[in-house]
Each structure stands twice: as C-alpha cells, then as structure tokens.
C-alpha cells in the first residue's frame, strides 16, 4: 500500500468510526477489535478525513484553524495518517 502524499484523499472506511464516549469522556477511534484514543489534534484531523479533502487541504485547514507552522502540521498529520493507514483504519 502506498504512503500518503499531499494529494491523497484520506477517509475513514466503513467499520471505522470516531466516537465521543460519554462513560470515559474521551474521543475514541473504533475499528475491528481496536480502540485508539484520539487526542484533540487527532480528532481535528479525523473529522476532516471524509474522502473529499486532500491531505494538503487538510493541512492548510488546520494551519489556519490553529495558526501554527504549516510544515510542523504537515509532518504530524502525514505521520498520523500513515500510521492509521498501516492499521487499515484510514483508506487513502
């Protein structure tokens, strides 16, 4: 499977969902036999993984929303998406 690039359009496949769990008061990414805690940054990224935006556009979005340096955001987002794609929790 290829690594994510700026033109990838990451999306959560069916069977992978982001959920706010009331019992634990945490955001969780649920997948087959997997539960991954999602920190606020991961939630912001994953909410944008709809298959419509490219990874580059997601980074632009976040850089604007958090007024942070684009290159740092790009690095973190690419790493997160690559890691989740490896686990089949994000499709590219």
């Amino acid at each position: 499977m290829s690594a994510p690039t700026a033109t990838s359009r990451p999306r959560l496949p069916r069977g992978v969902r982001l959920k706010h769990d009331k019992v634990r008061d945490e955001w969780l990414l649920l997948a087959p036999e997997r539960v991954v805690k999602a920190n606020p940054v991961a939630v912001a990224v994953l909410e944008r993984c709809t298959g419509e935006k490219t990874l580059g556009e997601i980074v632009d979005d976040l850089a604007a929303a958090y007024s942070a340096e684009r290159s740092l955001i790009e690095r973190d987002v690419t790493k997160l998406i690559a890691d989740l794609a490896d686990k089949r929790m994000v499709d590219l």
Binding site: K19, D21, V23, R24, L30, E33, V35
Partner: peptide, 11 residues
C-alpha cells in the same frame, strides 16, 4: 445491549 452501552462497552 442497552445496559452494556451504558456501562461503557464499546465493541
């Protein structure tokens, strides 16, 4: 199933 969800079961 309702009780399980309330108790925190995810899967």
């Amino acid at each position: 199933f309702s009780e399980a969800a309330e108790a925190g079961v995810l899967h």
